[in-house]
Design a binder for these strands. Structure first.
Lengths: 179, 179
DNA sequence: TGTATGACGTTACAATATAACATGTCAATT
DNA sequence: AATTGACATGTTATATTGTAACGTCATACA
């Protein structure tokens, strides 16, 4: 693999331009393999999500798309997001009714997410063990898993000191401009 | 503990009247311990959810409540459901935007759910291992988990033979009348 | 008896998501 | 070049899910 993308990257300082650029490159590669097209709306949608390690609501994405000259009706955003999710390039964060870019597309994975309730950063965790444990529990009752959702809400390392229970604003998540 | 409620119970034939009755009794006990009140709307809401091992949307619950003579505006259902969830008597199934009764209230647990996409049964799984694995992954990046969501979508034992991909209706989930 | 608290009811609205159909684009074929 | 088919996009309209805010009522307790 070209680069290393450790778990919890969203919580640590890093060269985000490169981080996002890599993800975009690999997304393109993954789509090419599947014979799928990364059209302008889709590409821009992915770019928007890659700008930060956060989850954005469909309407947030839509607003950005509209201001870039794309359509400004909900289906425009939902279609791009749904497509990207099907292709494994975007994950839906159900607790937030929101979407976040996949940090290691191409690789098969049943992702787990760590969501900071203070700064709203979202990290895609290395959680093979979680998937295995869930699979084992399912097997025990003869249930066949097709898709799984694993999300943890709490405090990221940067916010755990700063935020007692909710009051002062915590630090912003690690992210820099994209372009 | 009074009775045994194994994982995957929702998928197996069982004495559901007793299953639901037990859950209600334990819910009452748990609330009493906390000095919280099980008012008529709340009790009825829990009863409705206990009628089947499925998840019901807030508006489904509301409809039932209204036909029983309670208020018929969304906040009536949401308030009862939110209260019951806070007390750990009801769980929110985020994948379905729906709610299901807790099968072992009182005990601390970070529940995992197995959701059949065919018959829509929802089983609350014994998944201590899942919680531990998730906790370990979080610890590795110094993330502090406060609440977690673990849901698997797939096919229950009864539907796994019947349903190839989606077509003919699968069997109904194991459930009988409540009252 | 007054007063505080919490539960319930209602109005009104916000936020999220989808159905259905029209238009456009592009490439493969004729 | 014209035709066709597949798929992406744009738009209208509406469905579904969830909350804010305020008034009323009952209970419990000073």
């Amino acid at each position: 693999m070209a680069h290393d993308h450790p778990t919890g990257l969203a919580f640590a300082p890093h060269d985000h331009d490169r981080c996002a650029g890599d993800a975009m490159e690999r997304a393109e590669a993954a789509l090419a393999l599947q014979g799928q097209r990364l059209t302008p709306v889709r590409r821009r949608t992915l770019q928007i999500l890659l700008e930060s390690h956060r989850a954005l609501g469909a309407y947030d994405v839509l607003e950005r798309l509209a201001s870039d000259g794309y359509g400004n009706q909900p289906p425009v955003a939902y279609r791009a997001l749904d497509f990207l999710e099907e292709q494994g390039l975007v994950h839906r964060i159900r607790r937030l009714n929101a979407f976040t870019a996949c940090m290691h597309p191409g690789e098969t994975h049943a992702p787990a997410f760590l969501i900071c309730r203070e700064c709203h950063a979202v990290a895609e965790a290395q959680a093979t063990g979680v998937g295995q444990a869930l699979e084992a529990a399912a097997k025990a009752v003869h249930f066949v898993i097709e898709r799984s959702t694993v999300e943890a809400l709490g405090l990221c390392p940067a916010c755990v000191g700063t935020a007692g229970k909710g009051g002062e604003k915590g630090p912003a998540p690690v992210t820099r401009g994209f372009a």
